[in-house]
């Protein structure tokens, strides 16, 4: 019987050697600013988590009655805007580069799923604001949820349920998916250019 720990370590190191996980060079074709939209998306997510932790520390009602609380809510609000702003730019860039080529399909898939789960994270956030916007989104959204049977289990009008989805379940899912996505990117490396016409031997 071989040593399971040693085998796990060997396969992890083989899949992602340290110099590939944290490379200090990139291929020469990485020369455009469209490559940084992933990093700015990650940074926006970081500020979402930080401002979210501050808001969570004081509870969901705090920001309505505290100037400091409202400021951190504003940080959270603009971080959401920045997050989707950069995530969509990142998606555009990867699409136009056809970044799924060369065995990078799973990288694209995890990114696209992260986008979809992020929609849910943002949606439950809008429902957790405790203001008219939340009330309106809840009563409007319920018909869509009920129309396909989801509303029977995922009740937009249940603040407690939406709040726990927003502050725990969905952020954890986004963070986990992002981690897998980043490891996939590091494992496969950035996608090489599309070959120019006339090259295909």
């Amino acid at each position: 019987m071989s040593n399971l720990t040693a085998r796990l370590r060997a396969s992890l190191v083989a899949a992602l050697p340290p110099e590939q996980l944290l490379p200090d060079s990139q291929p020469e074709y990485v020369r455009s600013y469209v490559y940084v939209f992933g990093a700015t998306t990650l940074a926006s997510f970081g500020f979402l988590i930080i401002s979210g932790i501050v808001l969570a520390l004081f509870g969901p009602g705090w920001w309505h009655v505290s100037r400091i609380g409202h400021f951190f809510n504003s940080i959270h609000f603009w971080s959401v805007q920045a997050f989707f702003f950069f995530m969509v730019l990142h998606l555009w860039a990867q699409f136009f580069m056809a970044a799924w080529r060369g065995g990078r399909g799973i990288t694209w898939l995890t990114g696209a799923v992260t986008f979809v789960v992020s929609l849910g994270a943002a949606f439950t956030g809008y429902l957790s604001q405790q203001n008219f916007d939340s009330q309106w989104i809840a009563v409007q959204g319920k018909d869509a949820m009920n129309a396909i049977g989801i509303g029977a289990y995922f009740n937009l009008l249940n603040f407690g349920q939406m709040y726990t989805y927003h502050v725990f379940l969905l952020p954890v899912a986004v963070a986990a998916l992002t981690t897998v996505h980043l490891l996939q990117v590091r494992r496969r490396g950035v996608v090489p250019p599309i070959p120019p016409r006339g090259l295909g031997g």
Binding site: E28, V30, R31, S32, Y33, V34, Y35, V36, F37, F85, V88, L89, W92, A93
Partner: peptide, 16 residues
């Protein structure tokens, strides 16, 4: 968004 995307393509990263 469209403007930043266009700039992203137009501008070159430093350090090359």
């Amino acid at each position: 968004m469209v403007a930043v995307f266009a700039l992203g393509i137009a501008l070159r990263l430093p350090g090359h």
